[in-house]
Design a protein around this nucleic acid. Structure first.
Lengths: 213, 213
DNA sequence: CTGTAATCGATATATTTTTATCGATATAAA
DNA sequence: TTTATATCGATAAAAATATATCGATTACAG
């Protein structure tokens, strides 16, 4: 076990780190060498104390009146959220959303590389979506075991989600990034991270209803 | 101002309500008439006390040993998150993600109806993506003002996000559901709800790194 | 009819997260 | 050199959220 893997980072902090990274990457591109928590906070419209506390979870250390060295900070953030490592992943369910995710360049930039996609639709077999081949769902287990894939992105229709999950887990998948609105039942050793778009819509509609604050 | 619009609902509660709705809709479909907080909690793998507290924000009232009347609860939840009302919305940026959103049937079921999409790519003009016409971005303001559209879903590339936002705001848009990783500058009267996929990826990777708990 | 168990609703406690305060320090200006 | 100011890092306070406790109530079994 590495020294970083048993540290505990607050989830709200983890969620903010990618934004910080985006901001300081832009500054780095402009040639800036240092950045203060205040700079980041102003750019994102949040509180600078919160930023400083979040950054304290990185090993980066700041200098008063100057801020943090950008290269150091980028490395520290990437290290926490695992964007300095590369992983191979498969995508299951090459429908609208699945295809959109395959085409998003941001994932490979952050170390998540789609090496294959699987679908139940025979017509898609052998076709490519954004340089990723669509394979028959029948070959799922074979591919996972042969290439030792650990990460699956799940974009299948709800009714198929649990069944596909069982197959993924059985084949040795260690983590599932789930985009279907279903609570997946998996053994405790498997990580499931679910995204639900409808939560965001709900918050949006409530805020709309009460007007802007 | 209606009596519901100045009530304050905790954001975590709002985010959970769609899941509750999904669960009880399924039970309703099976013919069940009542549901307890415990039922919902078990189905979602969360704490029943939390569910009961969340449901207390609806006007639905439960009976000991029986639970809540499902029809009443569905109405109560839908009322809070605005899914009992209909809104017309436009989508700007008919790329991969935008097209995927247009094709998702869940939105119109929840009262968010895409009446048009706009894109800067001439080749797309006049084509349809999931029954929604792609119009030239030049017609954006005209369409918004003529049809009195209040909601826009933003799926344009980052570099165009602020510029498009300015146009939307200028034309009278009241709320923007933003899928680009950019902090949009808008007047205080305009609601911006931003979704950032990368937050989810970060949390996923951190959890993977420290293994399943 | 009576006792039992499940559940609600209210209240209380604990935990997490955010925000505030303050001394120390490094830079820049006077 | 001295002074002023921005910033860090640590600690403290406040706010938000989650979890626990408990009496009241209702259905159901005996």
């Amino acid at each position: 076990m590495t020294d970083s893997s048993d540290k505990k980072y607050p989830v709200p902090t983890i969620r903010r780190l990618p934004s910080y990274l985006r901001v300081i990457k832009a500054l780095d591109f402009e040639g800036r060498e240092f950045v203060s928590a205040t700079d980041i906070a102003n750019e994102l419209g949040i509180d600078s104390i919160k930023v400083r506390k979040d950054l304290a979870y990185t090993e980066a250390t700041g200098k008063p009146r100057v801020g943090y060295r950008i290269t150091e900070l980028m490395h520290g953030i990437r290290s926490i959220i695992g964007w300095d490592r590369n992983s191979e992943a498969i995508l299951v369910g090459a429908g609208c959303l699945g295809s959109a995710l395959l085409g998003f360049p941001g994932f490979s930039k952050r170390g998540l590389n789609f090496v294959a996609a699987f679908d139940a639709d025979r017509e898609k077999y052998g076709t490519y979506v954004h340089e990723c081949e669509i394979k028959p769902i029948e070959e799922l287990e074979k591919f996972i075991t042969e290439r030792l894939i650990e990460i699956a992105v799940l974009t299948v229709p709800s009714f198929a989600a649990q069944q596909v999950t069982d197959r993924l887990v059985n084949a040795g998948i260690k983590g599932i990034w789930n985009f279907s609105p279903v609570r997946l039942k998996v053994p405790p050793s498997v990580v499931v991270q679910s995204e639900n778009l409808m939560s965001g819509l709900a918050v949006f509609m409530v805020r709309m209803a009460r007007g802007a604050e």
